[in-house]
């Protein structure tokens, strides 16, 4: 591991006195960053340690929303969300990711900012535009079974690995951040991530020195909710395809559909086209298929991942069928589809 200088941020207001060293990185839980530093995929010259940053370690409930501090761990958020019916989807997504050991360290902001698990991003002997801009994309012409079908470019097809972010997309989350000048900004999570385009190394709209302070989750009915993750083993594996869905059904008509797709996008995928096609429509197999056709019109496959469009179709059908059956049996239900 390359040597680095170490600075500590203890209070949010201290951000104004941080030196602006190019290449400095904040470190919260460190479960992804330390791994990447060991492999020298990441070589920050300075780390700003957030271990003593106490300001953003809690979840607070307000009239219209929940505010989740950036340093709230994935375990804490999963536990809280499991007891909050409108946030069940988020709890399910969090618990389907990683392991207890990792969730105990990983933070809310760190989860949003985790890097792809593309094999070639991790392998410093291979070209990767995300790791080394301009070097090329190995994945496009190699084994790309885990790679994306949405939001890709000729320069990068790496998936965003987060489950949590997929549920947050579906739940209309917003990201709150602070600039090095101490100014606070809030923006929709849907506008936070950047598709690779010609600059795969730029993954989100955070600028140098900006720090995520919280995630805002609006209070609103999500209906019956289910996070279904399809993967190579039943625990501790990244999604090949995942569907985060919340459904409110009224006389078999879709009143409200919250939807996010994981494992298929270069960013946590918000399927706006499918949501638009289904909202207000009768929930039939034919209409689900039509919505999928419309969403998948922009998808592109790369060889080893040719199975993903069909797997996504099967998964969405299964999830919406189960949610609809539950809503018909328990009209106006709010919470998890299954709870043991």
């Amino acid at each position: 591991m390359q040597p680095f200088n170490l600075t500590h941020l203890n209070n949010t207001s201290d951000i104004k006195s941080l030196s602006s060293i190019e290449g400095a990185r904040f470190i919260a839980g460190g479960t992804n960053l330390i791994d990447l530093m060991k492999l020298q995929v990441e070589t920050p010259v300075e780390l700003v340690d957030l271990s003593d940053w106490q300001d953003e370690r809690s979840i607070t409930e307000h009239d219209e929303h929940f505010r989740v501090g950036a340093m709230v761990t994935n375990t804490e958020l999963a536990n809280y969300a499991s007891k909050t019916v409108g946030l069940s989807l988020l709890s399910q997504a969090l618990l389907s990711g990683a392991t207890v050991q990792l969730r105990n360290r990983a933070t809310t902001a760190g989860n949003l900012l985790q890097r792809t698990r593309c094999y070639y991003f991790y392998d410093t002997a291979k070209p990767c535009n995300k790791r080394e801009p301009g070097s090329g994309c190995t994945a496009i012409d190699s084994v790309n079974r885990i790679h994306a079908i949405f939001g890709t470019s000729e320069n990068c097809i790496a998936t965003h690995p987060s489950d949590m972010a997929v549920a947050m997309m579906a739940l209309d989350a917003q990201v709150e951040l602070i600039t090095p000048n101490g100014e606070t900004k809030t923006l929709p999570l849907r506008n936070f991530y950047c598709k690779p385009g010609a600059t795969p190394h730029i993954e989100n709209c955070l600028k140098e020195g900006e720090l995520i302070t919280a995630v805002i989750l609006p209070k609103r009915a999500a209906g019956t909710q289910y996070y279904h993750k399809v993967r190579d083993r039943s625990s501790y594996a990244f999604a090949l395809v995942s569907v985060a869905a919340g459904l409110v059904l009224q006389n078999n008509k879709v009143e409200k559909l919250s939807l996010g797709f994981g494992g298929v996008g270069t960013v946590p995928w918000y399927p706006a086209t499918a949501i638009e096609a289904l909202t207000g429509a009768q929930l039939t197999e034919a209409n689900i298929e039509k919505a999928l056709d419309a969403e998948l019109a922009s998808a592109k496959v790369y060889g080893s991942n040719n199975f993903k469009p069909q797997l996504l179709r099967n998964t969405l059908h299964k999830v919406l069928r189960a949610l609809a059956e539950h809503q018909r049996t328990y009209p106006q239900h709010e919470g998890a589809l299954y709870e043991n």
Partner: peptide, 13 residues
């Protein structure tokens, strides 16, 4: 609480 000791710097603790 359980964690992976390999993925945390000592100074963080």
């Amino acid at each position: 609480e359980r964690i992976n000791a390999c993925l945390v710097f000592a100074f963080q603790l």
